[in-house]
């Protein structure tokens, strides 16, 4: 599996009803993946979509390798699954919702949380209120 230029979406979809491309698939908490992220960035991963804050190590990795962390709206799973146009299991089918999927999406709504310049939207939101 070549990770160069790819985007990873952290999600554990619910089963698809008959006729659906995929079941409800909102973002899951990204910090659980922090420990595995920097090696993937080194392989050329360009972006991740999830929810919640990342470790300092990951944020530094984004700067170093020129990648971005996005958040989608946690809990908007029914809505987000409509933006997924195709889904195919690539690896670990036995893990069910935790299998690795290949997804094609269209107009998938995300927010930039951490960029290549070290900005952090979650931190910025908190400092805005203190001003």
């Amino acid at each position: 599996m070549d990770l160069a230029g790819q985007i990873i979406y952290y999600a554990g979809p619910a089963p698809a009803k008959p006729g659906y491309v995929i079941g409800p698939a909102g973002p899951t908490t990204s910090s659980r993946m922090d420990a595995y992220t920097v090696p993937l960035l080194a392989e050329g991963l360009k972006a991740m979509i999830g929810k919640g804050s990342r470790s300092e190590e990951v944020k530094k990795g984004l700067e170093k390798y020129g990648a971005v962390y996005f958040a989608a709206v946690g809990g908007a799973a029914a809505l987000l699954s409509r933006k997924i146009k195709s889904a195919r299991v690539l690896a670990y089918p036995e893990l069910g919702p935790e299998a690795v999927f290949e997804l094609e999406v269209e107009d998938f709504p995300v927010f930039v949380i951490n960029d290549v310049h070290g900005n952090d939207l979650y931190q910025m939101a908190l400092s805005d209120i203190q001003e």
Binding site: A11, G12, P13, A14, K17, Y20, G23, P24, A25, G26, T28, V73, G74, G75, A76, A77, A78, L79, L80, S81, R82, P97
Partner: peptide, 14 residues
């Protein structure tokens, strides 16, 4: 999202 889940009877969150 809640509207879609309600109409299609699919879970609102995965």
């Amino acid at each position: 999202n809640a509207g879609i889940a309600d109409r299609e009877e699919i879970p609102m969150c995965q």
